[in-house]
Write a protein that binds this DNA or RNA. Sequence first.
DNA 1: GATGGAATTACTGTATACAACAAATAGCAT
DNA 2: ATGCTATTTGTTGTATACAGTAATTCCATC
Lengths: 248, 248
Amino acid sequence: MSDAQAPEKRRAPVKEGKESKKESKEGDERHEAIYRAVSDAIVEQRLKPGARLREDALADVFGISRTGIRKILQRLALEQLVTLTPRRGASVTRPTADEAKDVFDARQLIECGLMPDVARRMGEKEAAELREMAREERQALRSGQQSVAIRLSADFHVRLAQLSGNATLAEFVERLCSRSSLILAVYGHRGHLGCESHDHDDLIGYLEAGNGERAKAFMSRHLKAIEASLSMVEEEENVPDLQQIFGG
Amino acid sequence: MSDAQAPEKRRAPVKEGKESKKESKEGDERHEAIYRAVSDAIVEQRLKPGARLREDALADVFGISRTGIRKILQRLALEQLVTLTPRRGASVTRPTADEAKDVFDARQLIECGLMPDVARRMGEKEAAELREMAREERQALRSGQQSVAIRLSADFHVRLAQLSGNATLAEFVERLCSRSSLILAVYGHRGHLGCESHDHDDLIGYLEAGNGERAKAFMSRHLKAIEASLSMVEEEENVPDLQQIFGG
DNA sequence: GATGGAATTACTGTATACAACAAATAGCAT
DNA sequence: ATGCTATTTGTTGTATACAGTAATTCCATC
């Protein structure tokens, strides 16, 4: 992530070493791991939209106090994976149809716009890495691990964006892909996954050939196909409109 | 959600600090206000890049405890306005030249791409609002309030993006504009502000006429002009190269 | 039996205390 | 006087305690 990694000032090596480091040296890593665990669970739909995320429960599970949990929940909230309602706590975000449209429109604009840059910077090593990712994704799909496949697909798109060389836009794409996974989990048909077939492999081909425009057009169709595969039925059983139901 | 446009309710000034505890009915608003205060101070360069933001000091100034301050600092860190170094605390981010390039490339892609949509949804009321914003900006510039002008300019671009109807992309633009203000504050020449002249008014004209493509091209030039006006000298006095300085 | 209200419960919001760590400073030896 | 080590200090990281509020349950009343 874009967390700051300041160039560390080297202090004079202390040979003392009288006390070995305590276990708590990298509490930061632990936080990152927990964040990833929760994030993945949401993206893979093991935590379903609307599910409540109680601070106590999470603190209990991960063995840290509520303080750390709150920090993580807030980060997830800023990424719009969880929703924080003032005195009701946190829950997994349930994307609306409008939000879904916004997200896919945004991906259309950004990811497609990035393709020429990616094509320009695409080398042999990068292509190989992407192919490996695509392979893993297909494998997960074949073995029935649909949730994992959704996440791997998102990873693929993110890696692609990173190859553009623009870290800021890559971060945006990362956020959009996370939310997309959530959207797919809600509105997607079971067994009809978004990035199936060999779309990703085809895309790599165009990029490797340096054909940015072709890749751009292909990405556009690819995203449109995913969006089209969704069934955008907003289940609004939350607030039944009595007026409308009982004639007004 | 984009929380920006909320017309802020001004609370009555609390005279008695004593009862401030009870006052916490809307602690959320207070937090939002503090966030805005710090954010604005950074964007307007009253807090200069590199400035340390000690939790105690901030907690003292705003009359809340470190807990709330940490929350706000973390949000600012996620928006990359402040940098959080593990056990050294928070400081105002000093954008690098690379980051600056990424940010402006991103704006080029997103803001320009949004223009057609904006043109399509542009009505009389929206145009009037934008003109008013542009007016305020010019006025601030004329009266020597450069920092305020920078912020107002950012507000203009954000409002524009919001008019596209895509909340997600508007939020991205908001973040990019904040960072741009920081970049301008660091790399911009004094007295040679980015969005001067009547660029914004011209842009409104094209949009009002429904000429999305024209607006897009104009926005592209506008952003290029701002970027070109920066003096991208990375002051690297951190690590003076003694070899080079003293003969070699 | 249903409805409204009061007491209870469960959970979040905030502050604060304490521990851990890095920097600054003083002290000591060479 | 210089360089290294120890102590002190300042600041963040984490946990916990307490307070306040929404949800729930139970009881009384209609």
